[in-house]
Computed example of a mutant assay.
Amino acid sequence: MNAAKGGAMSKGSVSKRPTIVDVAAHAGVSTAAASKVLRNAYGVSPEMKAKVQASMKALGYRPLASARGMRGRTHTVAVVVADLHNEFSSLLVEGIRRECERQRYRLLVAPAGSGKAAQDRMVEDLIDRGMDGIVLISPLGTDAELETMATNTPIVVLGRHGASQEFDSVAADDFAGANLVVDHLVSLGHRRITYINHTTEGTNDARLPEEVRVRGYVDAMIRHGLGDAIDILQSQWSQEGGEQSGKTILSRPQRPTAVFAGCDVAAFGVLTALWEAGIRIPDEISVAGFDNIFTTSLAPISITTVDQSGLDMGGTAGRLLLERIGGRTEAVNTVVQPGLVTRKTTAAHNHLTIDAASGPAPNVSAKV
Protein backbone atom coordinates (compact mmCIF):
# COMPACT_ATOMS: atom_id res chain seq x y z
CA MET A 1 0.00 0.00 0.00
CA ASN A 2 2.80 2.38 0.86
CA ALA A 3 4.58 1.58 -2.39
CA ALA A 4 1.41 2.09 -4.41
CA LYS A 5 0.73 5.36 -2.62
CA GLY A 6 4.28 6.50 -3.17
CA GLY A 7 4.12 5.56 -6.85
CA ALA A 8 0.90 7.48 -7.33
CA MET A 9 2.38 10.57 -5.74
CA SER A 10 5.51 10.32 -7.84
CA LYS A 11 3.51 9.90 -11.03
CA GLY A 12 1.28 12.88 -10.33
CA SER A 13 3.89 15.21 -8.87
CA VAL A 14 4.97 18.35 -10.74
CA SER A 15 8.21 20.14 -10.06
CA LYS A 16 7.25 23.56 -8.67
CA ARG A 17 9.26 26.52 -9.88
CA PRO A 18 10.83 28.26 -6.84
CA THR A 19 9.48 31.73 -6.11
CA ILE A 20 10.95 34.71 -4.30
CA VAL A 21 8.91 33.59 -1.28
CA ASP A 22 10.76 30.24 -1.34
CA VAL A 23 14.10 32.05 -1.59
CA ALA A 24 13.22 34.27 1.38
CA ALA A 25 12.20 31.27 3.50
CA HIS A 26 15.39 29.38 2.57
CA ALA A 27 17.56 32.39 3.43
CA GLY A 28 15.65 33.13 6.62
CA VAL A 29 14.80 36.69 5.58
CA SER A 30 11.62 38.58 4.68
CA THR A 31 10.21 38.48 1.17
CA ALA A 32 10.76 42.25 0.92
CA ALA A 33 14.44 41.82 1.80
CA ALA A 34 14.91 39.08 -0.80
CA SER A 35 13.17 41.25 -3.39
CA LYS A 36 15.51 44.16 -2.62
CA VAL A 37 18.51 41.90 -3.26
CA LEU A 38 16.99 40.76 -6.55
CA ARG A 39 16.48 44.38 -7.66
CA ASN A 40 19.82 45.54 -6.24
CA ALA A 41 17.86 48.14 -4.25
CA TYR A 42 19.29 50.71 -1.87
CA GLY A 43 20.13 49.70 1.71
CA VAL A 44 21.06 46.02 1.27
CA SER A 45 24.04 44.90 3.34
CA PRO A 46 26.76 42.70 1.77
CA GLU A 47 25.89 39.93 4.24
CA MET A 48 22.21 40.01 3.30
CA LYS A 49 23.06 40.03 -0.39
CA ALA A 50 25.38 37.02 -0.07
CA LYS A 51 22.83 35.05 1.96
CA VAL A 52 19.98 35.61 -0.48
CA GLN A 53 22.12 34.96 -3.56
CA ALA A 54 23.31 31.68 -2.02
CA SER A 55 19.67 30.61 -1.53
CA MET A 56 18.82 31.57 -5.12
CA LYS A 57 21.63 29.36 -6.35
CA ALA A 58 20.73 26.48 -4.03
CA LEU A 59 17.09 26.50 -5.15
CA GLY A 60 17.82 27.13 -8.80
CA TYR A 61 15.75 30.32 -8.66
CA ARG A 62 15.34 32.36 -11.84
CA PRO A 63 13.10 35.43 -11.93
CA LEU A 64 10.31 35.43 -14.47
CA ALA A 65 10.82 37.61 -17.51
CA SER A 66 7.95 39.75 -16.30
CA ALA A 67 9.80 40.36 -13.04
CA ARG A 68 12.80 41.56 -15.04
CA GLY A 69 10.75 44.42 -16.41
CA MET A 70 9.57 42.82 -19.67
CA ARG A 71 5.86 43.06 -19.03
CA GLY A 72 3.67 45.95 -20.22
CA ARG A 73 1.71 48.36 -18.12
CA THR A 74 -0.92 47.16 -15.68
CA HIS A 75 -2.81 50.49 -15.77
CA THR A 76 -2.89 50.28 -11.98
CA VAL A 77 -1.30 52.77 -9.59
CA ALA A 78 -1.24 52.97 -5.81
CA VAL A 79 -1.33 55.62 -3.11
CA VAL A 80 0.41 54.91 0.20
CA VAL A 81 -1.26 56.63 3.14
CA ALA A 82 -0.35 56.40 6.83
CA ASP A 83 -3.46 57.90 8.45
CA LEU A 84 -6.86 56.90 7.09
CA HIS A 85 -8.57 58.43 10.14
CA ASN A 86 -7.66 61.91 8.97
CA GLU A 87 -10.38 63.15 6.64
CA PHE A 88 -7.83 65.27 4.77
CA SER A 89 -6.07 62.09 3.63
CA SER A 90 -9.40 61.00 2.17
CA LEU A 91 -9.61 64.28 0.22
CA LEU A 92 -6.15 63.69 -1.24
CA VAL A 93 -7.01 60.10 -2.18
CA GLU A 94 -10.30 61.16 -3.77
CA GLY A 95 -8.49 63.76 -5.87
CA ILE A 96 -6.06 61.08 -7.10
CA ARG A 97 -8.93 58.67 -7.78
CA ARG A 98 -10.79 61.18 -9.92
CA GLU A 99 -7.75 61.82 -12.08
CA CYS A 100 -7.08 58.09 -12.43
CA GLU A 101 -10.69 57.47 -13.40
CA ARG A 102 -10.53 60.24 -15.99
CA GLN A 103 -7.50 58.59 -17.59
CA ARG A 104 -8.86 55.04 -17.11
CA TYR A 105 -6.35 53.88 -14.53
CA ARG A 106 -7.22 51.83 -11.47
CA LEU A 107 -6.17 53.14 -8.05
CA LEU A 108 -5.16 50.88 -5.17
CA VAL A 109 -5.21 52.49 -1.70
CA ALA A 110 -2.45 51.07 0.50
CA PRO A 111 -2.71 51.88 4.24
CA ALA A 112 0.85 51.65 5.55
CA GLY A 113 0.27 52.48 9.21
CA SER A 114 2.80 54.54 11.13
CA GLY A 115 6.58 54.36 10.98
CA LYS A 116 9.17 54.23 8.26
CA ALA A 117 9.64 50.45 8.35
CA ALA A 118 5.93 49.86 7.66
CA GLN A 119 5.99 52.42 4.86
CA ASP A 120 9.05 50.84 3.22
CA ARG A 121 7.54 47.34 3.38
CA MET A 122 4.37 48.57 1.73
CA VAL A 123 6.28 50.30 -1.08
CA GLU A 124 8.37 47.18 -1.69
CA ASP A 125 5.23 45.06 -1.87
CA LEU A 126 3.58 47.44 -4.31
CA ILE A 127 6.64 47.47 -6.57
CA ASP A 128 6.74 43.67 -6.46
CA ARG A 129 3.09 43.57 -7.49
CA GLY A 130 3.77 45.57 -10.61
CA MET A 131 2.25 48.98 -9.89
CA ASP A 132 2.84 51.35 -12.79
CA GLY A 133 3.44 54.17 -10.32
CA ILE A 134 2.99 55.17 -6.66
CA VAL A 135 1.90 58.33 -4.82
CA LEU A 136 3.41 58.66 -1.33
CA ILE A 137 1.55 60.90 1.13
CA SER A 138 3.97 62.65 3.53
CA PRO A 139 6.52 59.81 3.34
CA LEU A 140 9.32 59.33 5.86
CA GLY A 141 12.93 58.88 4.77
CA THR A 142 15.73 60.79 3.11
CA ASP A 143 15.79 62.24 -0.39
CA ALA A 144 18.33 59.58 -1.36
CA GLU A 145 15.98 56.78 -0.27
CA LEU A 146 13.03 58.28 -2.13
CA GLU A 147 15.16 58.82 -5.22
CA THR A 148 16.21 55.17 -5.11
CA MET A 149 12.54 54.18 -5.02
CA ALA A 150 11.98 56.40 -8.05
CA THR A 151 14.55 54.42 -10.03
CA ASN A 152 12.36 51.32 -9.68
CA THR A 153 8.98 52.88 -10.46
CA PRO A 154 7.59 56.39 -11.05
CA ILE A 155 6.62 58.11 -7.79
CA VAL A 156 5.04 61.39 -6.73
CA VAL A 157 5.56 62.70 -3.21
CA LEU A 158 2.47 64.43 -1.84
CA GLY A 159 2.57 66.72 1.22
CA ARG A 160 6.30 66.52 1.93
CA HIS A 161 8.34 69.62 1.13
CA GLY A 162 11.54 69.77 -0.90
CA ALA A 163 12.24 69.47 -4.62
CA SER A 164 14.06 66.62 -6.35
CA GLN A 165 15.17 65.94 -9.90
CA GLU A 166 14.22 62.27 -9.57
CA PHE A 167 10.55 62.47 -8.58
CA ASP A 168 7.63 64.90 -8.70
CA SER A 169 6.18 66.56 -5.61
CA VAL A 170 3.03 68.41 -4.60
CA ALA A 171 2.84 70.33 -1.30
CA ALA A 172 0.88 73.18 0.22
CA ASP A 173 2.75 76.22 1.52
CA ASP A 174 2.31 75.12 5.14
CA PHE A 175 4.55 77.93 6.40
CA ALA A 176 2.33 80.57 4.81
CA GLY A 177 -0.79 78.77 6.05
CA ALA A 178 0.39 78.89 9.66
CA ASN A 179 1.22 82.58 9.20
CA LEU A 180 -2.36 83.20 8.04
CA VAL A 181 -3.84 81.72 11.23
CA VAL A 182 -1.55 83.61 13.61
CA ASP A 183 -2.07 86.86 11.70
CA HIS A 184 -5.83 86.36 11.94
CA LEU A 185 -5.78 85.66 15.68
CA VAL A 186 -3.48 88.60 16.40
CA SER A 187 -5.75 90.87 14.34
CA LEU A 188 -8.54 89.88 16.75
CA GLY A 189 -6.39 91.03 19.67
CA HIS A 190 -5.13 87.64 20.86
CA ARG A 191 -1.66 87.47 22.38
CA ARG A 192 -1.63 84.14 24.22
CA ILE A 193 -1.88 81.71 21.31
CA THR A 194 -1.07 78.04 21.95
CA TYR A 195 -0.04 75.82 19.04
CA ILE A 196 -0.81 72.06 18.96
CA ASN A 197 2.00 70.27 17.10
CA HIS A 198 2.37 66.68 15.88
CA THR A 199 5.24 64.53 17.12
CA THR A 200 6.39 61.63 14.95
CA GLU A 201 8.45 59.09 16.84
CA GLY A 202 11.88 58.38 15.41
CA THR A 203 12.00 61.27 12.94
CA ASN A 204 12.56 65.00 12.90
CA ASP A 205 12.36 65.55 9.14
CA ALA A 206 12.24 69.29 8.56
CA ARG A 207 10.31 68.75 5.30
CA LEU A 208 7.23 67.12 6.80
CA PRO A 209 4.10 69.32 7.06
CA GLU A 210 4.10 69.31 10.87
CA GLU A 211 7.64 70.68 11.03
CA VAL A 212 6.94 73.39 8.43
CA ARG A 213 3.71 74.49 10.13
CA VAL A 214 5.29 74.86 13.56
CA ARG A 215 8.05 76.99 12.02
CA GLY A 216 5.36 79.15 10.43
CA TYR A 217 3.67 79.61 13.83
CA VAL A 218 6.96 80.58 15.51
CA ASP A 219 7.85 82.95 12.68
CA ALA A 220 4.51 84.75 12.88
CA MET A 221 4.61 85.04 16.67
CA ILE A 222 8.08 86.61 16.53
CA ARG A 223 7.05 88.90 13.68
CA HIS A 224 4.20 90.23 15.84
CA GLY A 225 6.53 90.80 18.80
CA LEU A 226 5.16 87.78 20.69
CA GLY A 227 8.31 85.68 20.88
CA ASP A 228 8.04 85.46 24.68
CA ALA A 229 4.50 84.11 24.37
CA ILE A 230 5.36 81.19 22.05
CA ASP A 231 3.62 78.13 23.49
CA ILE A 232 3.87 74.77 21.70
CA LEU A 233 2.19 71.58 22.90
CA GLN A 234 3.79 68.47 21.37
CA SER A 235 0.96 66.03 20.80
CA GLN A 236 -0.60 63.90 18.05
CA TRP A 237 -2.78 65.13 15.22
CA SER A 238 -5.70 62.93 16.16
CA GLN A 239 -8.98 63.26 18.03
CA GLU A 240 -7.37 61.75 21.12
CA GLY A 241 -4.29 63.96 20.87
CA GLY A 242 -6.45 67.06 20.53
CA GLU A 243 -8.58 66.11 23.53
CA GLN A 244 -5.50 65.53 25.70
CA SER A 245 -4.09 68.88 24.59
CA GLY A 246 -7.36 70.55 25.51
CA LYS A 247 -7.25 68.99 28.99
CA THR A 248 -3.65 70.16 29.44
CA ILE A 249 -4.70 73.70 28.53
CA LEU A 250 -7.61 73.53 30.99
CA SER A 251 -5.26 72.47 33.79
CA ARG A 252 -3.11 75.57 33.49
CA PRO A 253 -3.53 78.45 35.94
CA GLN A 254 -3.38 80.85 32.98
CA ARG A 255 -5.04 79.65 29.83
CA PRO A 256 -4.43 80.89 26.31
CA THR A 257 -7.07 83.07 24.70
CA ALA A 258 -6.66 81.20 21.42
CA VAL A 259 -5.60 77.71 20.33
CA PHE A 260 -4.21 76.92 16.88
CA ALA A 261 -4.33 73.20 16.17
CA GLY A 262 -2.01 72.07 13.36
CA CYS A 263 -4.78 70.02 11.72
CA ASP A 264 -8.58 69.96 11.87
CA VAL A 265 -8.81 66.52 13.47
CA ALA A 266 -6.80 67.77 16.45
CA ALA A 267 -8.93 70.93 16.54
CA PHE A 268 -12.03 68.76 16.94
CA GLY A 269 -10.37 67.07 19.91
CA VAL A 270 -9.51 70.41 21.51
CA LEU A 271 -13.08 71.63 21.02
CA THR A 272 -14.45 68.44 22.58
CA ALA A 273 -12.37 68.92 25.74
CA LEU A 274 -13.28 72.60 26.02
CA TRP A 275 -16.99 72.03 25.36
CA GLU A 276 -17.15 69.25 27.96
CA ALA A 277 -15.58 71.64 30.50
CA GLY A 278 -18.22 74.26 29.77
CA ILE A 279 -15.84 76.66 27.99
CA ARG A 280 -17.69 78.98 25.62
CA ILE A 281 -16.23 79.04 22.10
CA PRO A 282 -15.16 81.61 20.97
CA ASP A 283 -16.20 83.90 23.85
CA GLU A 284 -13.61 82.47 26.25
CA ILE A 285 -11.17 80.69 23.91
CA SER A 286 -10.90 80.89 20.12
CA VAL A 287 -9.93 77.74 18.23
CA ALA A 288 -8.54 77.40 14.70
CA GLY A 289 -7.50 74.35 12.66
CA PHE A 290 -5.76 73.52 9.40
CA ASP A 291 -6.94 71.50 6.32
CA ASN A 292 -10.57 72.60 5.80
CA ILE A 293 -12.03 69.10 5.90
CA PHE A 294 -15.74 68.88 5.15
CA THR A 295 -16.95 68.56 8.75
CA THR A 296 -15.40 71.92 9.70
CA SER A 297 -18.01 73.64 7.53
CA LEU A 298 -21.03 72.06 9.24
CA ALA A 299 -23.18 74.80 10.78
CA PRO A 300 -23.17 73.58 14.41
CA ILE A 301 -19.34 73.40 14.34
CA SER A 302 -18.08 76.00 11.84
CA ILE A 303 -14.33 75.92 12.54
CA THR A 304 -11.95 78.61 11.33
CA THR A 305 -9.28 76.80 9.33
CA VAL A 306 -6.81 76.88 6.44
CA ASP A 307 -7.94 75.60 3.05
CA GLN A 308 -5.17 73.93 1.04
CA SER A 309 -7.43 72.44 -1.64
CA GLY A 310 -7.00 68.73 -0.81
CA LEU A 311 -8.96 67.56 -3.86
CA ASP A 312 -6.88 69.75 -6.16
CA MET A 313 -3.63 68.61 -4.54
CA GLY A 314 -4.62 64.97 -5.00
CA GLY A 315 -5.71 65.59 -8.58
CA THR A 316 -2.42 67.29 -9.39
CA ALA A 317 -0.46 64.40 -7.87
CA GLY A 318 -2.47 61.90 -9.92
CA ARG A 319 -1.95 63.84 -13.13
CA LEU A 320 1.81 64.17 -12.54
CA LEU A 321 2.12 60.45 -11.82
CA LEU A 322 0.34 59.46 -15.01
CA GLU A 323 2.50 61.90 -16.97
CA ARG A 324 5.60 60.21 -15.52
CA ILE A 325 4.25 56.81 -16.49
CA GLY A 326 3.61 58.22 -19.95
CA GLY A 327 7.27 59.07 -20.41
CA ARG A 328 7.93 62.53 -18.96
CA THR A 329 11.37 62.60 -17.32
CA GLU A 330 11.86 66.17 -16.12
CA ALA A 331 10.81 66.76 -12.51
CA VAL A 332 7.80 68.92 -11.62
CA ASN A 333 7.55 70.33 -8.08
CA THR A 334 4.27 72.11 -7.31
CA VAL A 335 3.50 74.32 -4.29
CA VAL A 336 -0.17 75.13 -3.58
CA GLN A 337 -0.99 78.46 -1.95
CA PRO A 338 -3.42 78.11 1.00
CA GLY A 339 -6.23 80.44 2.02
CA LEU A 340 -7.82 81.29 5.38
CA VAL A 341 -11.46 80.35 5.95
CA THR A 342 -12.88 82.33 8.88
CA ARG A 343 -15.86 80.82 10.67
CA LYS A 344 -17.50 80.89 14.11
CA THR A 345 -14.79 79.43 16.38
CA THR A 346 -12.62 82.56 16.35
CA ALA A 347 -13.49 86.05 17.56
CA ALA A 348 -12.09 88.98 19.52
CA HIS A 349 -11.66 88.00 23.16
CA ASN A 350 -13.19 89.98 26.01
CA HIS A 351 -10.11 89.73 28.26
CA LEU A 352 -7.06 90.19 26.09
CA THR A 353 -4.76 92.16 28.36
CA ILE A 354 -2.13 89.95 29.99
CA ASP A 355 -2.10 90.37 33.75
CA ALA A 356 1.19 92.05 34.58
CA ALA A 357 1.29 90.23 37.90
CA SER A 358 1.12 86.77 36.36
CA GLY A 359 3.32 87.61 33.36
CA PRO A 360 3.08 86.32 29.81
CA ALA A 361 2.36 82.75 28.82
CA PRO A 362 5.37 80.47 29.25
CA ASN A 363 7.69 79.86 26.32
CA VAL A 364 7.46 76.08 26.42
CA SER A 365 7.29 73.01 24.24
CA ALA A 366 5.35 70.61 26.44
CA LYS A 367 4.56 67.07 25.38
CA VAL A 368 1.11 65.70 26.11
Score class of each variant (00 low, 15 high):
residue 214 V to C: 06
residue 152 N to T: 01
residue 161 H to A: 08
residue 287 V to P: 03
residue 296 T to Y: 12
residue 223 R to F: 03
residue 335 V to H: 05
residue 72 G to S: 08
residue 140 L to I: 02
residue 140 L to Y: 02
residue 170 V to K: 07
residue 145 E to H: 10
residue 242 G to K: 10
residue 356 A to Q: 10
residue 40 N to R: 14
residue 83 D to P: 04
residue 193 I to F: 05
residue 135 V to Y: 02
residue 211 E to N: 15
residue 342 T to S: 15
residue 80 V to A: 13
residue 341 V to I: 13
residue 191 R to C: 15
residue 18 P to L: 04
residue 104 R to S: 14
residue 340 L to N: 01
residue 243 E to I: 15
residue 73 R to A: 11
residue 326 G to C: 05
residue 148 T to F: 02
residue 58 A to R: 11
residue 158 L to N: 09
residue 158 L to D: 04
residue 49 K to W: 05
residue 281 I to E: 06
residue 44 V to Q: 01
residue 151 T to V: 03
residue 42 Y to V: 01
residue 60 G to Q: 10
residue 350 N to C: 14
residue 10 S to I: 11
residue 82 A to Q: 03
residue 234 Q to A: 09
residue 250 L to V: 11
residue 215 R to H: 11
residue 81 V to G: 01
residue 184 H to A: 02
residue 165 Q to C: 10
residue 366 A to S: 06
residue 70 M to N: 13
residue 26 H to R: 15
residue 94 E to N: 15
residue 79 V to G: 03
residue 145 E to K: 04
residue 10 S to A: 14
residue 283 D to P: 02
residue 34 A to R: 02
residue 21 V to T: 00
residue 80 V to N: 05
residue 76 T to D: 00
residue 29 V to M: 12
residue 290 F to V: 01
residue 244 Q to N: 13
residue 353 T to L: 14
residue 296 T to H: 11
residue 169 S to Q: 13
residue 230 I to W: 00
residue 239 Q to H: 11
residue 184 H to D: 01
residue 368 V to D: 09
residue 30 S to R: 09
residue 317 A to Q: 01
residue 104 R to I: 01
residue 43 G to V: 01
residue 358 S to A: 14
residue 70 M to C: 10
residue 309 S to F: 14
